[in-house]
Amino acid sequence: MAWRSHGRTNADLVRNLETSENRIFTSPRVREAMLAVDRGDFTKIDPYQDSPQGIGCRATISAPHMHAAALEALSETIGNAVKSGQECRVLDVGSGSGYLTACLAVMAGPTSKVVGIEHIGQLVNDSLANLKKHHSDMLASGRLQIIEGDGRVGYPQLAPYDAIHVGAASPQMPTDLISQLKIGGRMVVPVGVAEQRFLQVDRINETDIATKTLMDVIYVPLTDKAAQMCR
């Protein structure tokens, strides 16, 4: 099962996610990103266990297999943007610990613009502290930003995006985020309430999208700041 991919070190974890019977990812771009970003910088409790971990403020860092699956789903789109020579733009909604935002920034390369948006100020501060341990260069260059705000409406200031990751379950298809996808761009997002599906959403043209169910999942809800703090 996917949650048996844990390891003793970050390298162990990444190797098991790639080479075990689960084969969570196959892209070399994903491997390089996950090796470059040590999960141990982003959670103090069992960082290499393949399970979600609490990070405070009723938030979690997703299990490594979910992060690997999200990176795998976005790797082709990000790779195409990088190969085109254009500035790759990526949005991470509900950026939490900052871990996946950092992985996305590594994948997207040094000329990219990657934004993590998180509505809990404490988590924003914590994620910046996490990133400064080994990735302060990405913050200093502006290649990676962490913004405090309502991720449900995205971050239109840098739209359109080549890739969007949503780290909490939207009760329905998030139309505001879809509108911020570039034509040819891709989003991965958990959708649903009692039953949730992890969806891949591709923008075909100005009016059409294509959706694909990647797996059934259980995520915390994508909600407002007050509701999260009161749960």
Rank of each mutant, 00 (worst) to 15 (best):
S170G: 05
D216M: 02
D202W: 06
L177R: 00
D208V: 10
L177G: 01
Y219A: 08
A129H: 14
Q200V: 11
P171I: 12
I218T: 12
Q180G: 06
R186E: 04
S179E: 15
P171F: 12
I164H: 00
Q157S: 14
I147Y: 01
V114Y: 00
G121N: 08
R197T: 12
L214F: 00
I209L: 11
I164E: 02
V166T: 06
Q180W: 11
V191I: 15
V201L: 07
Y161V: 04
Y155D: 03
M173Q: 13
G98E: 01
T175Y: 11
A102Q: 09
I178G: 07
K113Y: 10
T207L: 11
P190M: 00
D216A: 06
I204L: 14
L123M: 13
V189I: 11
I204V: 15
S136W: 00
Q122D: 15
D176H: 13
Q200H: 08
S170Q: 05
A194W: 09
E195D: 12
I117E: 04
T111C: 08
S141A: 13
V193P: 00
Y99V: 08
M138K: 13
P156W: 02
V188R: 02
G185L: 03
Q122F: 14
E206D: 14
G167I: 05
I183T: 12
L131Q: 01
E206F: 14
A169V: 03
A129F: 03
I120W: 07
A105F: 07
Y161I: 06
L123D: 03
G184F: 05
S141Y: 08
P190T: 01
L123G: 06
A169S: 12
Q157L: 15
I218P: 01
Q200S: 14
T101K: 02
L144Y: 08
R197K: 12
L199A: 09
D208I: 05
P110V: 13
A168K: 04
G151N: 03
D208R: 15
P110R: 14
S170K: 03
G151R: 04
M187Y: 11
Y155C: 09
A194I: 09
I120G: 01
S112P: 13
L177F: 06
Q145K: 15
S127C: 09
M215G: 02
A163G: 05
G184P: 11
D208K: 15
L199R: 03
T211L: 10
R152C: 08
P160I: 02
V188A: 00
R186G: 01
P156Q: 01
I146E: 12
V201D: 01
V193R: 00
D150K: 08
